[in-house]
Design a protein around this nucleic acid. Sequence first.
DNA 1: TAGGCCATCTGGTCCT
DNA 2: AGGACCAGATGGCCTA
Length: 369
Amino acid sequence: MLTRLFSDPSLQSDVHKYSGWAEDSESEDSKMKDDDLDHERCRLGDDDTDDPELRGSGAHSENLGEDDDDDDLGEDEEDEDDEGAGEGDAEDGRPKKRGPKKRKMTPARAQRSKVRRQKANARERTRMHDLNSALDSLRKVVPCYSKTQKLSKIETLRLAKNYIWALSEILRSGKRPDLVSYVQTLCKGLSQPTTNLVAGCLQLNSRNFLTEPCQESGRYASSSFSVHSYPYPCARLASPHCQSGSNSLPLRTHGYCSAYDSLYGGSGSPEYNSPEYEGPLSPPVCINGNFSLKHQSPPSPEHEKGYHYSMHYSSGLAGSRQTPAHNLVFGSSGMRSGIHNENVLPYHDVHPHHERPPAYDELNAFFHN
DNA sequence: TAGGCCATCTGGTCCT
DNA sequence: AGGACCAGATGGCCTA
């Protein structure tokens, strides 16, 4: 909010005045910005110096505003030592400047400073790009991934934290968690939109909680949230072919898609190579069973063995009735139907092994026991 | 249009 | 001195 407040052009002059006060000098960045012609924030530049050492020199500045009587000091004053500026500060009630005397800003020094600043900017950009790349990598291994509707940075971190926590709890307890608590754990602290997104990715909107007997798979039909009987969704999501393919059920919502898109879209789907998606899928979070990391597609008897405990979505879920009590927090936007996890592409197929979170192997082994 | 999110610039601080 | 890291400031873009 403060940023917003400061963003108000009507307030910016006051903000800069404040900045000048707070930093006991004119705004140095105004000079720095002058050096960067492609940046719009050069608006305050009135000096060709950009050496931070000149901060607090008491040089003239519009930033100091109308109450600053030092404006008439002129540029000559800028090269004076701190004492002069300090006295001026004292008159303004500002603390006397301490520290080494300011060195005169020669053109050579100014040029060096400018280059230094530009290099620092480039490094900072690179650093932030690396950070964003790492965040993208993280997005791909949390239970909800979409290239079209990326989680925000903060939501990615929150979800990752929750995910780690949930997996840790699974390992610690040695039990399959309750579906509801699992989802609640994942979504703890997330915004409502993100919660809905995650729930959608997990195929867990309200209707999923009111299950009808599984009519298609016939395996995990249940009307309860039984840990052992409820068909947990695999959150291996957002396939590269996440399109409303002709052979896919309408699973896509708000730009993300579920594992089912990949299932029904399949490699043979015309949409499979949609340029919209090209990254790896999110890992499975089939907490009701093993993580099926070694599944192959198309399914084979080995696969059946592999996801013996895997989630199976009931087509009946799509049309199932729901009661308000089951609405939970997920809303109803993310409902999908007709989900068969037999068709879920194995995580191993879409995630290079080196990208697989280490926990998955352990968890996979665990659920195979 | 307000608010959220983001990229970028910037100066400060700490460390090598 | 220079690099890494951080946080504040700012403007752009997007969406409800």
